[in-house]
Amino acid sequence: MYQFTIKPLFGTEEWELGSTGVNIAFTNSALWMMITTIVVIAFVQMGTKQQMIPGRWQVAVESLTSFIDNLVQSSIGAQGRKYIPYVFTLFIFILFGNLLGLLPLGVLGVHPFTFTSHFTVTGVLAVISFSIVLLVGFWKHGFKFFTLFVPHGTPIFMAPLIAVVEFISFMVRPFSLALRLFVAMMAGHILLEVLASFVVSGGLAGLGFGAIVSLPSMLLMIVICALELLVAGIQAYVFALLTALYINDAENLH
């Protein structure tokens, strides 16, 4: 669990907002958010050369943007174009956060911190997405937005029940959004940690145990590392996709 520990780097004591007692110390989590921001900016910057015949970095960035573009267009439609900056930022921020947290920098003595494995972080992102849905929904449709809870073709006598169920499922969205990412990232990291501890303790217990326990664990770790890279991408994709789908509800209301 050590890898999930938040350690203040500086500003522990005096970094408080006014006299509210709200501490905003710059922690290792904040550091990795900063690194993610810098890496994302540096990466996307290479795609903005605006060449007609793109270089390889430009192709990489362009394929990512067109990927998000397709995602948004297919789930929201033509008027979804204005949400592309947000969905793209969400996607690439989570993706790079996940991937940077997987870097094997522990070998060098630097411990990467996966801020997406904290539900405070994923919760904030989910709340932002959910707020956008609410704002857009009420902005565009006013109180008609509540008809979202009564799907088309609902028999009138079923409407109250359906509305309650729909309302609950609607309100669960930010939690499911936040918990999904947090749990997926944390589970993967814990799994790798457990397997790594098997490798180490198996090796320490002698040659026989090393062969029986450490070697298979090591092989499994390699496979799961590949799986984690996949999960890092998929979770970022799922978060962006669900956000786009929820925005679609608000934008198009059925």
């Binding site: 938040i6 501490n23 922690t27 989590s29 904040a30 958010m33 992102l125």
Partner: peptide, 12 residues
């Protein structure tokens, strides 16, 4: 939590 939220909002 306050530090997490603030810095996430800042960098996001």
């Amino acid at each position: 939590f306050s530090s997490q939220i603030v810095w996430l909002l800042v960098f996001f």
